[in-house]
Amino acid sequence: MISAGSATRGAGLLGACGVLVLVCLLSIAVGARSIPLPEVWQALWSPSDSTESLVIHDLRIPRTLLGLGVGAALGLAGALMQALTRNPLADPGLLGVNLGASAAVVIGIGWFGVGAASGYVWFAFAGAAAASVLVFLLGSAGRRAATPERLVLAGVAISAALSAFISTVVLLDNKTFDQFRYWVVGALAGRKMSTVIELAPFLLAGIVLALLLARSLNAIALGEEAGRALGADIGRTRALGAVAITLLCGAATAAAGPIGFVGLAVPHMVRGFTGPDQRWLLPYSMVLSPVLLLAADILGRILLSPGELEVGVVTAFLGAPVFILLVRRRKLVAA
């Protein structure tokens, strides 16, 4: 028999999916050339040679699909980070993923002459993966297991080193700085469908792995001893969680650049409705994070129309004050 709480959460998740569909349609309709929703719906099912149809299929649909994938990845990765570290203020950047990707992009631009967004993708993904693996190896070095505290400390150390490396390279090479600054701000514009297709397997693998870890994460949330008593393999769960975070953050950062706040705040806000149960927290974060990301992208197009403001800038401006207010209200930090 389904409990009232489960029924409410299930209905809420369906409602969130409905909101996501609406935001996706708005993302396709709104831009420098605004297209009425009826025309959007018709163009989706009956492509033509009209300008509106070409804009929708060549520009807006790839951008919206990328926002869906990147938002879902950041939300799930943030929820995983907060569960694995038992820290509600943790975010995907805590393991050095963003800075690992950024360092690799700097290398690609400065040392290999990569000049297109399609070329940044694989450098960024490789850098994100390498940083995550290095953090996990350092956090698990020695006789002690990779505890949340050791992983966080390893992430801080690696992030500091990577930040210094990036600053050194871009300050010494103006050409690298000029190209790098457009990627590092975080944006969904200018990406092709080929980028979405190339990264889709990594995103799907990370999403499936993250959702499969829900029960184990619930067990280890009670503490290591209680988790083992409930049959959870602590080391295996942390290792698989690190793999999922690498896949999700690596692909998302490679495709859109480092985008802040989404993976930090959405899982935290969702927890107020779902509670700590990862079986609900993870799916809600996966659905509502792209809602936030696409809504921010739409707002960025409206604010500077016919130009646009990059989504990474919008999420930072909107998200930071809201999150600070939320943290203070919940008394997670000292007032």
Rank of each mutant, 00 (worst) to 15 (best):
V152K: 14
L80F: 10
G139S: 02
D49A: 13
A4E: 13
K175N: 15
V40I: 15
A145V: 03
S118D: 12
L76K: 15
D173C: 05
I109N: 05
S48I: 05
A11C: 06
V266W: 04
R9F: 04
A116N: 07
G12N: 05
D178V: 13
A103C: 14
T315H: 05
R328Y: 10
P38G: 00
A219D: 15
L240S: 10
K192F: 02
I107A: 08
V270N: 04
S48A: 10
F180H: 14
R150T: 12
V19N: 03
S140A: 15
P290E: 08
G67K: 01
L44I: 00
L325A: 04
G75S: 14
V196P: 03
L213F: 10
Y120H: 10
L199H: 09
A316K: 01
Q278A: 07
L137G: 00
G71L: 06
R143Y: 01
L65G: 11
F202P: 06
W111A: 08
L293Q: 09
G312M: 11
L212M: 05
F165I: 09
W122L: 12
A79K: 07
F112S: 01
G119C: 07
T237Y: 03
A242F: 11
R150F: 09
G100M: 09
A4L: 14
T168N: 15
A205D: 07
A335W: 14
V156C: 02
G115W: 11
S34A: 13
T195A: 14
A130F: 15
R191N: 14
L59R: 12
M193S: 03
V287Y: 06
A239L: 15
F125Q: 02
D49N: 15
V70P: 05
A79C: 11
L137R: 12
G275T: 08
A254P: 01
P148W: 00
D233A: 08
T274S: 12
P267L: 06
M286L: 13
G115E: 12
N174R: 15
I245H: 11
L325E: 00
F261N: 00
V287A: 04
G319P: 13
L22F: 15
L282N: 14
G272Q: 13
V322P: 05
L94A: 07
G206H: 04
G155Q: 07
A145K: 00
S102P: 02
Q82E: 03
Q179V: 04
G155P: 14
L137Q: 12
S34C: 05
A104H: 13
I298K: 01
